[in-house]
Design a protein around this nucleic acid. Structure first.
Length: 125
DNA sequence: TAATTGACGGGCA
DNA sequence: GTGCCCGCCAATT
């Protein structure tokens, strides 16, 4: 519980970091042995098209199960040694791969529904 | 203030 | 399977 006295009525920092906090909180929900994708995390956090902000949250935050976050289709999007480490970590948790991708059908984590804000997609096509 | 960056996503050729 | 383009949006330069 926050009191009005402890918060400067929605200070700048509070407003601007809200998105990242939601994303971070969402990432932290992913249990061991399960994985999710940038897009799915963004949607679960309430931002249907903020996949890039998921990237930012992972890069700028520490202590997150980053290895459980994959690109669309379960593909590892990291480069170099980081990609190797991610795969190793996931395999250590029991996650299986199908070629260069994680077997999402077996390991994708489904966030609790109802937290979405509206889904919509950009006028793409 | 503007431009660039970033572990993205999806459609198309 | 691969390369290209556009959309998305906070953080950084």
């Amino acid at each position: 519980m926050i009191s009005a006295s402890s918060v400067k009525s929605g200070s700048l920092a509070e407003r601007s970091s809200r998105m990242r906090e939601r994303i971070v909180a969402t990432i932290r929900k992913i249990p061991k042995g399960r994985v999710s994708t940038y897009g799915a995390i963004a949607r679960a956090a309430g931002y249907p098209s903020a996949a890039r902000q998921v990237v930012g949250a992972l890069r700028r935050s520490v202590g997150l199960p980053w290895q459980r976050v994959l690109g669309a289709g379960g593909e590892i999007k990291l480069r170099g040694d980081s990609a190797i480490e991610q795969r190793l970590r996931l395999e250590a948790e029991g996650v299986t791969f199908r070629g260069r991708k994680v077997n999402l059908a077996r390991h994708e984590f489904h966030f609790s529904p109802g937290n979405k804000r509206g889904k919509g997609r950009a006028s793409k096509g």
